[in-house]
């Protein structure tokens, strides 16, 4: 039997953690872009757009991420579209992230007093102009802490992609645990690496919350 040193285990886990980081970044960036689009639909004046957006949000928040991963991986290949695991994982995570970010941001937009909409409307601004110059700059300030906080969920969510065969931190942990027969050590390290990734995020979320509150300008 081959002997694995602790360093062997840790080194290989850290190499795999790169993919966790990449996948998290992809999911978060893509999710932010799609989420912004969903947000605009969700608060638009057209009823069809609002219904579509809230249906989207309900669907992706109301089903487990695991099922979404299965469906985008196995479902698409059943339809004859071969998707590699990384692509299926990316798509599912982006759509899932978008549904949560859209809803978080909607709350932030709605927290802006109605008077801001009325004042900017009475000055002749159109809806997009109001959003861009008056509402979003104020909503952004409130949105930063919960958005950064949610990014922790995205990082942890990437661990589910191991199920469809994408080799990131959790999957690497499985493989290495099977090879070394040292599951406790291996999964202990896996958990530790996730914690090291997530802890700064949740800390900075708390920090930003305090900082932006101090800077918050009342009217």
């Amino acid at each position: 039997m081959i002997e694995f040193t602790t360093w062997d285990i840790l080194r290989n886990l850290l190499l795999a953690a790169r993919w966790t980081v990449v996948l998290s970044l992809v999911a978060f960036t893509g999710g932010a872009i799609v989420g912004l689009a969903i947000l605009f639909l969700r608060i638009s004046k057209g009823k069809a757009a609002r219904v579509f957006a809230s249906g989207y949000i309900e669907l992706f928040q109301g089903t487990p991420l695991l099922m979404q991963l299965f469906l985008s991986f196995f479902g698409l290949s059943l339809l004859g579209i071969e998707v590699p695991a990384w692509l299926a994982a990316g798509i599912a995570l982006i759509l899932w992230t978008a549904s949560f970010l859209a809803e978080i941001w909607r709350g932030c937009v709605e927290a802006i007093p109605k008077g801001q909409w009325e004042a900017s409307a009475s000055l002749g601004m159109g809806r997009l102009q109001q959003m861009r110059h008056v509402i979003l700059p104020q909503a952004l300030k409130i949105a930063v802490p919960p958005t950064v906080g949610f990014s922790v969920q995205v990082v942890k969510g990437t661990s589910l992609t191991s199920i469809i065969g994408f080799t990131e931190l959790a999957k690497a942990g499985q493989v290495i645990a099977n090879a070394t027969f040292a599951p406790f050590t291996v999964y202990g390290f896996v958990a530790l690496i996730y914690f090291v990734l997530c802890f700064p995020l949740s800390k900075s979320s708390q920090f930003l919350e305090r900082k932006l509150n101090v800077a918050h300008r009342n009217h």
């Binding site: 007093p113 008077g115 801001q116 009325e118 004042a119 900017s120 409307a121 009475s122 000055l123 002749g124 008056v134 700059p137 104020q138 300030k141 300008r217 009342n218 009217h219």
Partner: peptide
């Protein structure tokens, strides 16, 4: 219409940012 007629509100509604 709104270019012709301006409005001032009870709560000022200045843009705080």
């Amino acid at each position: 219409l709104r270019l012709k007629v301006g409005m001032i509100f009870q709560g000022f509604n200045l843009f705080p940012h």
